Amino acid sequence: MRYRRPGLDWLSHGLLGLCCLLFGLPVWLAVTASTHTLGDLYSQTAPLGFGDAGLDNYRELLGGAVGGLGTDVTTLLVNSTLMALGIAVGKIAISVLAAYAIVFFAFPLRRLCFWLIFITLMLPVEVRILPTFEVVADLGLLDSYAGLILPLIASATATFLMRQFYLTVPPELVEAARIDGAGPWRFLRDILLPLSKTNLAALFVIMFLYGWNQYLWPLLITNDADYLTIVVSLKRLLTSADGLVPWHYVTATAVLAMLPPIGVILLMQRYFVKGLVDSEK
């Protein structure tokens, strides 16, 4: 049911437009500033229009090392994408198997196992950063994709969400699969995973953004420029030997850093929304 109140509609649309302006203005300023030269940015206020540099700043960033990065932004984008994909896929795989075991297998202390997993929500990466770094260093995983991904692939949040979904599966469906001769792996592969595809899509978007926005862990374990991520490199661009911040490169890198997450959200938007709000998954 929709209420027809013209005054309220105008107010709602006005607030929506104001919010869009507040959120979109910084992005627009970054896009326009990335097309100006460094001299233009230091000689005037933040530009609202496009500059004469055009795509030159982007070509320089994607084609070679600039601003003291030690590598090109293409490598940074690849590193960030591999890290985010590895974290998202790893978290989903572990959470699916853990939730499946907790819900559908009867073994001693399974409730305790679930609560032990759930309690780890109280221990974010920052709290366990030193012991995790020591373990990764002892295993020789510094400056490697495995070191970037493996310590972050366990997720109590994803396990909890998948467990809650599996609890809604009717017992009759489990019994019917057992009568048809479906074993545990076949039941998981042919029944549970297709039923939970919207939930998995929503989790993938959330976990991909979580992996993409990681800053502290990549900063701590990477010294080789070939393994830097684009989020960490943005901070490095803000420092320069001559004291002038290369804002044309900073803004261009920020724009490039936004593109993969935006692409994932646009591609998975329908499944993401359905997985969060649709009761008939």
Rank of each mutant, 00 (worst) to 15 (best):
L148R: 00
E280P: 11
V127F: 10
T229L: 07
L167E: 11
V103M: 07
L11W: 05
L192M: 15
L200Q: 07
R59M: 12
A225T: 14
P260K: 07
N57K: 07
G63I: 02
P184A: 15
L234Q: 10
I153L: 02
L173P: 11
L192T: 06
Y210N: 09
I149C: 01
Y58D: 02
W212T: 00
Y58C: 05
V169L: 12
P47C: 12
R110I: 02
L192K: 04
L150D: 02
A182S: 09
L25M: 13
C20N: 06
L209S: 13
P151Q: 03
A225C: 02
L267H: 08
A154N: 01
A176E: 02
V231T: 09
W115C: 12
A106Q: 15
P124N: 04
F208P: 04
G67S: 13
P261S: 07
D278W: 07
L77N: 00
D180L: 03
M162Y: 12
L259S: 01
F208L: 12
V127A: 15
Y42C: 08
V89A: 14
A99R: 10
P246G: 04
Y145S: 03
A99P: 10
T45H: 14
F107M: 03
P26A: 06
T75A: 12
L150W: 03
T159R: 04
F50P: 05
S34T: 01
G263M: 11
R270A: 09
C19V: 15
F187A: 02
S196Q: 09
L112M: 13
H248A: 13
L82Y: 02
V96E: 06
V277P: 00
E60A: 15
N199T: 15
G70A: 08
F133E: 02
T120S: 09
L112C: 09
K197I: 11
V66M: 13
G39N: 10
F133S: 11
L97F: 14
C19N: 08
G181Q: 04
T45L: 14
T75M: 03
I265R: 04
E134P: 06
W115D: 10
G275S: 08
G90S: 04
L121Y: 14
G67A: 13
A88C: 05
R270L: 06
K235P: 00
L18N: 07
S155E: 01
G181M: 07
D9F: 05
M162N: 09
D52L: 15
D242T: 04
L259M: 05
R163I: 05
L41R: 08
G263E: 01
V264H: 02
A88Q: 03
F50G: 10
I87L: 10
R189P: 00
F114A: 10
L18D: 07
W185C: 08
G86E: 06
T198C: 11
G7Y: 06
Y210M: 10
Y58W: 07
V231G: 00
W10F: 14
L234G: 10
L219N: 11
M268Q: 04
S155W: 04
L48T: 08
A106E: 15
P124D: 05
N79Y: 01
R270Q: 12
V89F: 13
V250T: 10
L21V: 10
W185H: 09
L188E: 03
A101P: 01
E60K: 14
F114D: 06
L55G: 10
A106H: 14
T157D: 06
Y58N: 09
V169Q: 05
T35Q: 04
